[in-house]
Design a protein around this nucleic acid. Structure first.
Length: 886
RNA sequence: GGGCGGUUAACUCAGCGGCUAGAGUACUGGCCUUACAAGCCAGGGGUCGGAGGUUCGAAUCCUCUACCGCCUACCA
């Protein structure tokens, strides 16, 4: 058995990370085997856009998934984390178009086939970026199973779902008002429209009737009036009774439209009269349907006015508005203009104002699917974490509207529907049809592609091979956990639920873990335009992936925002260093290979050894619980606190006298406990900080084993040792008491104290007699004496009092009496106030028997301790006064 | 308009009926003590947004309220 060379003072993460990752990957440690028995644990990654680069959102997402996967893998589960990327229709198409534009080429110059080829070329060249970047984070994905939403298999799944839903009449094609982006030239679904508040104007236009005063109609969009089909008034509105059944003239035109009655007209708003433009407003569209109004298209797909607008034909919609206002004013058709705050819909991609537009699109009939998906969460088949998101989910599911799935793009899954040029029949088919099945006529495929989210909705099963009956599908579906940001509950989570239930008959995942969204230090969304984007790769270069991951996980609580703070990451890089240096110390004490020791039984005989084993056991139990409940922040906090303050600050210090001592047998036993405990600690840390722990593991062993495939520590009640915990807590108290005296009186380390502990408690005497030597260095003392009674207290002492005894330390010649008198007086005052507060509290607790016995007892004890300390400090004050007087 | 979060130490957050309200960073004082100065020891700092209420006991539960933010929505 040979241990590796002593470690450098610092962990060189830059050199280690890529080497370790290659090792893991090359040895196939990430690859899942469906034949491996045991419980499964499956995550499919939320596929990043293939054109994308790693951003903070991915980093958080991936870190949490990796923590869960590494934990479950070590725990012995059959763990699969399946990675992949999304073709991201509109985003990718725009990127390639922009690229072409630099060469002065449009997609129309190339034609559809050539353009799609270009996109594939682009994908080939740059699509690997994001997955390489995921590797930098340490993501233990099974790359042998990597998928892309436009892989042949996944495309087959998309087609299968489309056709079968069509056959069930759950997909239909319809003429409908949709959200049209005049810039992207495509329909977008309702949730792809963002609403922005805007200071706008409400224009009051005069619609003339031949023999009546003009009807005043308020609108924010005068340019749509060329598409007006009616003016609607509320049937209950008495102001317009004269106009009922009459016609009015659209301003700037000769066209007459009827005045109709509809409940939708709000008597409170504007004048109470509403112009109805079925082609350009969703509400008006519905009113139009109710009243069988004609649809007049006044604005085309480019956002320009049509021939319905007369002389305004060809003008951009906003230009036209300005020009019209001038003319309306001139002709006395503009009654007044009022400012108005309202929201306008904009395209989520390009922020262009959405134009409601009538066109023929494909829709998914969502009502029944959504009902199932909502039920699955209501009855707990899928659990949202944190559960507060359920309400949001239900609100949407219960009020869902049909999903517009066709997009006028070229990049994506082309809709498997064909139209016959002769009989106009529509054919939807799993296989490309050669001719119209009805009349044998020529077929033309629908040029549209499917919404990107359509293929994403199938991701949990399409990636496992569906519709084929694969071994993976049988073994790994349904998946265990979906980890994602709450911003895509509607876009993605809800749709996966619907499709999973519909196509597989099962929920696609058991838990949905919704994590916060990453913001900058000020809580602002990161965006290129704000210039507040922090590149995760630069952070990794600077601080290492481990510090970064730890920081993300430690902040991944139940809140909605996660404010990334470089200082905090920097802070956690110190933790990495702390672990590294603890390892250097442990290494110097190690007697045998850690990997062998980790599983072996150890003899924890000394109080510190028993204590650390007991604490380790407790931390293991708590840690497991935190991870099972997806409390990443608590897990990080737990291992941080335990490692730094208990393991390093106390345990390592307490055992130094033993390790540096002469008793070889005792040394061996303690080294054994130390080694085993440290090995377990590394394992506990590994899911969060895989690199430093794996590197250290390799330094401690030469059997070529990996910590990532070692077994996660298990809690074992046999290690519970409340007695040891109590004793160490006492040792800490004595040590702290002496340190406090030392610090309070400003004693330099060169002054070796000889503290005297006064106690009549036999337990404590025995403890200090046996363990006292371990404390000397920690207290900066050369000896520790025990006394049984107060008579032994010397005159020149100051004191510190514990709840079970007193520590006296000779101070003559070391202190500044006048300063101490001040300090002690102040402290005594404060104590007196505390005593009073405690007395009040005790009185109220004792007032009734409702307060639990132990609570009352605790208060009583605390009060007694404070009284004791008050007395002791008063004595110290007396003594210092004596010293000061000579 | 509806809904959901947040408001706790200088900063970022945890705690969500009962330890003297915690952590990291920052701050103050003392230390280069042979794992670590990216460290060690000690310490200062908060009437838990405001007002009521329930309770023996409230940062924690209830009601109201003020700011901040997010989501959602067919007032033109």
């Amino acid at each position: 058995m040979r241990l590796n060379d002593p470690l450098d003072k610092n962990f060189d993460f830059n050199a280690a990370e890529s080497r370790l990752y290659s090792d893991w990957e090359n040895r196939g440690l990430f690859i899942a085997d469906p034949k491996k028995p045991g419980p499964k644990f499956v995550i499919v990654i939320p596929p990043p856009n293939v054109t994308g680069n790693l951003h903070m959102g991915h980093a958080l997402d991936v870190t949490l998934q990796d923590i869960l996967t590494r934990y479950r893998r070590m725990k012995g589960d059959n763990a699969l984390w399946l990675p992949g990327t999304d073709h991201a229709g509109i985003a990718t198409q725009s990127v390639v178009e922009r690229n072409l534009a630099e060469k002065g080429v449009t997609r129309h110059d190339l034609g559809r086939e050539k353009f799609v080829e270009k996109v594939w070329e682009w994908k080939k060249a740059y699509g690997g970026n994001i997955v390489q970047q995921l590797r930098r984070l340490g993501a233990s994905c099974d790359w042998s199973r990597e998928r892309f939403t436009m892989d042949p298999g996944l495309s087959k799944a998309v087609r299968e779902v489309f056709v079968s839903l069509y056959e069930e009449n759950l997909i239909y094609q319809g003429e409908y008002i949709i959200n049209w982006c005049p810039r992207c030239h495509t329909a977008v679904s309702d949730i792809e429209v963002e609403h922005q508040n805007k200071s706008d104007h409400l224009y009051y236009l005069r619609y003339w009737a031949d023999d009546l005063p003009p009807l005043i109609v308020a609108t924010t969009r005068p340019e749509t009036c060329f598409g007006d089909a009616a003016v609607a008034v509320n049937p209950a509105d008495p102001r317009f009774s004269a106009y009922k059944g009459r016609q009015v003239r659209i301003p700037l035109t000769d066209r007459l439209i009827p005045v109709i009655e509809d409940d939708y007209a709000d008597m409170e708003f504007g004048t109470g009269a509403l112009k109805v433009t079925p082609a350009h407003d969703p509400n008006d569209f519905h009113i139009g349907r109710r009243h069988d109004l004609p649809v007049v298209v006044a604005i085309d797909e480019n956002g320009q006015l049509t021939d319905a607008a007369g002389s305004y034909e060809g003008l951009d919609r906003f230009e036209a508005r300005q020009k019209m206002l001038t003319e309306l004013e001139e002709k006395g058709l503009l009654e007044k203009v009022e400012p108005l705050e309202h929201s306008v819909g904009v395209c989520y991609r390009c922020r262009t104002v959405i134009e409601p537009f009538i066109s023929k699109q494909w829709f998914v009939r969502t009502a029944s699917l959504a009902a199932e998906a909502a039920a699955a969460v209501r009855d707990g088949r899928t659990k949202l974490v944190p559960a507060t998101w359920e309400k949001t989910y239900f609100d949407w599911m219960d009020n869902i509207r049909d999903w517009c799935i066709s997009r006028q793009l070229w990049w994506g899954h082309q809709i498997p529907a064909w139209r016959c040029v002769s009989c106009e029949a529509t054919t939807v088919s799993r296989e490309d049809p050669a001719a119209c099945p009805k009349c044998g006529g020529e077929l033309i495929q629908d040029p549209d592609v499917l919404d990107t989210w359509f293929s994403s909705a199938l991701w949990p099963f399409s990636t496992l091979g569906w519709p084929e009956k694969t071994e993976d599908l049988a073994r790994y579906f349904p998946t265990s956990v979906l980890v994602t940001g709450f911003d895509i509950i509607f876009f993605w989570v809800a749709r996966m639920m619907m499709m999973g239930l519909k196509m597989m008959g099962e929920v696609p995942f058991e838990h949905v873990v919704l994590h916060p969204l990453v913001r900058d230090v000020h809580g602002q969304k990161m965006s290129k335009s704000k210039g507040n984007v922090i590149d995760p790769l630069l952070i990794i270069d600077k601080y290492g992936a481990d510090s970064f991951r730890f920081s993300l996980a430690a902040q991944a609580g139940q809140a909605r925002d996660l404010r990334i703070d470089e200082k905090r990451i920097q802070g956690y890089s110190k933790f990495v260093n702390k672990i590294w240096n603890a390892a250097r110390f442990v290494l110097s004490a190690v007697k045998s290979d850690v990997t062998a020791t980790a599983g072996a039984a150890v003899q924890a005989e000394t109080v510190p050894d028993r204590w650390i084993r007991s604490r380790m056991n407790e931390v293991t139990a708590q840690g497991r619980a935190h991870l099972e409940e997806f409390h990443f922040d608590r897990y990080c906090d737990l291992i941080y606190q335990f490692t730094w303050y208990e393991f390093c600050d106390w345990y390592l210090e307490l055992i130094k006298p033993i390790l540096y001592g002469q008793d070889e047998a005792a040394k061996d036993k303690t080294a054994g406990v130390l080694t085993k405990t440290f090995a377990e600690l590394l394992k506990l840390i590994h899911p969060v900080m895989p690199f430093v722990t794996e590197e250290l593991w390799s330094k401690f062993s030469d059997d070529g084993s990996f910590i990532m495939t070692s077994s996660f520590p298990e809690a074992n009640d046999a290690a519970k040792d409340p007695e040891a915990e109590r004793l160490v807590s006492r040792l800490m108290d004595v040590t702290k008491a002496v340190r406090q005296v030392r610090s309070d009186f400003g004693l330099p380390p060169s002054v070796k104290l000889s503290p005297m502990v006064m106690t009549e408690d036999a337990d404590t005497r025995a403890l200090l007699e046996s363990q006292g030597p371990l404390l000397l260095k920690l207290m900066g003392a050369d000896q520790l004496t025990l006394a049984g009674g107060e008579e032994e207290r010397s005159k020149d002492s100051a004191s510190s009092v514990l709840d079970w005894g007193q520590v006296w330390t000779p101070l003559a010649g070391h202190i500044n009496p006048s300063a101490e008198i001040k300090r002690l007086s102040k402290e005594i005052d404060k104590l007196n106030a505390d005593v009073k507060a405690a007395e009040t509290k005790l009185a109220s607790e004792e007032y009734t028997s409702k307060a639990p016995e132990d609570v009352v007892a605790e208060t009583r004890e605390r009060l007694e301790a404070m009284r004791q300390r008050t007395i002791a400090l008063s004595r110290a004050l007396d003594l210092v006064s004596l010293l000061s007087n000579g």
